[in-house]
Design a protein around this nucleic acid. Structure first.
Lengths: 214, 214
DNA sequence: AATTTTTACAGGAAAAACACCCTTTTCTTT
DNA sequence: AAAGAAAAGGGTGTTTTTCCTGTAAAAATT
């Protein structure tokens, strides 16, 4: 891992490049590279130990592999890497998911340049950073009765994403190299798990919870 | 108006600052200031002729005064200022609205840094810039035929919204006080109209196009 | 008033979705 | 090694969806 190095993950190339430029003006920090999605980051990380940064600035809504999944992967394989979420989202559920996935901070895209620098400093110095936004949320979360977040298995998520397309279950089975009957099972399990009546319910749930991105 | 000057309008402070930094690295261009929304731009423009830029990079989704309204205002009061839309949206309807409002170009946020520079150059040199995205759209729009802006009847919209819920078609028929067979008809028409294969396609279309809100 | 378009509805058939109940195999975990 | 959970698959039957081809009345155009 390279100390004070930063990687930016965002599907909007222009933005990741612009933020990269900005971070590079903080003379303490250096951007190693940028990624368009989680998959790219996974590839980079696996390619070389030279590619492992100190901090990852992670967008949440991305195609192919979103911020939550990617953060989980990092946590599992490179737990010493600091992930900070950088998103337009200010939905509580999303923030909680990111933090659960292992993000150590959450920054909205409408913050100031100086705040970003401050946040990066906090992270590499103290290993954490939180806006008031997040700390309030954590307080409520600990004291509260929230947390109705359902966990999914890898296969279930894959299935759900495909169920959001126009493929029939038979076609989904083919794509996943499984018997249609197995797909039947996944569907039944998810229906009861999510308490939905049909595929439409599944689709809207998946979109609402950013499992599938339009 | 100050030649080769740029103003950026985006409610995400971090992004507008980052892009400002990027534009300033194009040594031909200089960023005058950034705005969080259209109202701020109006105020700035009215304050001093020194504040009128050559190009405005305009986000579309903003609170208080959005990109379309703001572009219309600029067109009305400072028609010589070049507005280029800079957005995550790639919905045809939105692009058309921006162009109608007077934007001379449309750039997605997932373009490359060099593309932005190129676009700015084109604008100040030739007075226009279009991605393939936009030119294709204009071609189709002129030659008619390809109808991108699909219009819906009141009943179709009602039906579509209900189709996004977990109700069966029979239940939807009851809700709309129509025979199930009539609903059959609406569905069939919409399927061909939107070129989708099944109800999932209809649901995702409706959500994507903000006909149904989650 | 005549014509066209829209809206509402029907029957029938095939495909897909949905519901339940059940078996085998393969991993973990203890 | 035993227990248990997770993953994959089978059988059977019902319901819903989807895709056709039509018809008839109402509404809008001409």
């Amino acid at each position: 891992m390279i100390k004070n190095s930063v990687v930016i993950v965002d599907d909007h190339t222009l933005l990741s490049q612009a933020i990269a430029g900005m971070v590079n003006t903080f003379n303490k920090f250096k951007v190693l590279y940028t990624c368009k999605n989680g998959q790219e980051l996974v590839d980079k990380f696996n390619a070389s130990p030279q590619n492992i940064p100190d901090v990852v600035l992670m967008d949440i809504n991305m195609p192919i592999m979103n911020g939550i999944e990617t953060t989980e992967w990092i946590e599992k394989n490179y737990s010493y890497v600091n992930v900070m979420a950088l998103s337009v989202e200010d939905e509580d559920a999303t923030i909680i998911k990111m933090l659960k996935a292992g993000a150590i901070g959450y920054l909205l895209k409408d913050t100031e340049k100086t705040e970003l620098e401050h946040a990066l400093n906090e992270i590499v110095e103290n290993g954490f950073f939180h806006t008031k936004n997040v700390t309030n949320l954590l307080m409520n979360s600990i004291s509260g009765k929230n947390d109705h977040s359902i966990t999914f298995k890898e296969r279930e998520i894959t299935f759900m994403k495909l169920a959001c397309t126009e493929l029939t279950y038979k076609e989904i089975a083919e794509k996943m190299c499984l018997s249609p009957k197995t797909i039947d099972g996944y569907r039944d399990v998810l229906f009861t798990k999510l308490n939905v009546k049909n595929r439409v319910g599944l689709v809207t749930y998946a979109i609402k919870n950013k499992i599938y991105t339009l």
